[in-house]
Design a protein around this nucleic acid. Structure first.
Lengths: 124, 124
DNA sequence: GCATCAATCAACCATGTGGATGAATGATAA
DNA sequence: TTATCATTCATCCACATGGTTGATTGATGC
């Protein structure tokens, strides 16, 4: 049957790590707020983002770095100002992993259903 | 316009927390492996899950508790054995949040496009 | 009763995380 | 040059996390 595992090798170790980074980045409420803010307002400077929160500028800077590592945000450093822009693409990796999990799950139920039906036909 | 924010109140503080729990639970590679395993094999005992990993039974037990807190797994304690079952429903919360973010983003681009078009019409 | 099995609890350890503050870098503006 | 602004770097702190080992709880089977 050559499951989804077909492509799964050392290559996917990286994808796994990427997924972890993305999910971890998205798992913090403050970081999700930052993403929402950026989606609404478009590219913003670190300071402008900071203005919307109670916490220190440094904390914001750190959060942005985490988001950056997850690829959920890109930074265009224009001279002294860093423009931060939200990046939707990585979310697809999560979508895909969810889809994969769901299909594995559905496949099992399907197989189970066939088994039961077969048994019913043979046993009756 | 009464954005998506319509329903956003103290009620959504809980939803936010739920989302954080789910994403944090999913952000660990071992926990994702456990989910995949459960999706493939159906409900399993803690010990059986443990058999598939190198780490200690206790570590597995802890991971399961995290998954449980995120609702990604449910536990049916049948006498001394705890049957662990994967639960797909919470993933929808993540899907929905992604969808929301994407739509906010798309809406902004759309509005921006209208602005540019208007400007073009008036300025030319 | 006693050994065994399934699972958790308790403690501990190293490391990571979210926050703060203060100093440093680097460019702009006076 | 000096002051100011945007941002990061360096520390520090409290607490969470992923892992370990050892003890504990409860039910099973002899």
């Amino acid at each position: 049957m050559l499951f989804i595992r077909m492509v799964e090798r050392k290559n996917d170790r990286i994808a796994e790590d990427r997924l972890s980074e993305i999910l971890k980045a998205a798992s913090d409420p403050t970081r999700r707020q930052i993403l929402t803010l950026l989606a609404q307002h478009g590219p913003m400077r670190v300071t402008d983002i900071h203005r919307q929160f109670e916490i220190s500028l440094n904390a914001i800077s750190k959060h942005i770095k985490v988001l950056e590592r997850g690829g959920l945000v890109v930074r265009r450093t224009e001279w002294r100002e860093h423009m931060i822009e939200v990046q939707m693409d990585p979310l697809r990796l999560v979508d895909d992993w969810f889809a994969g999990l769901r299909s594995i799950w559905a496949l099992r139920l399907e197989a189970l259903d066939v088994l039961i039906t077969d048994k019913g036909e043979n046993d009756d």
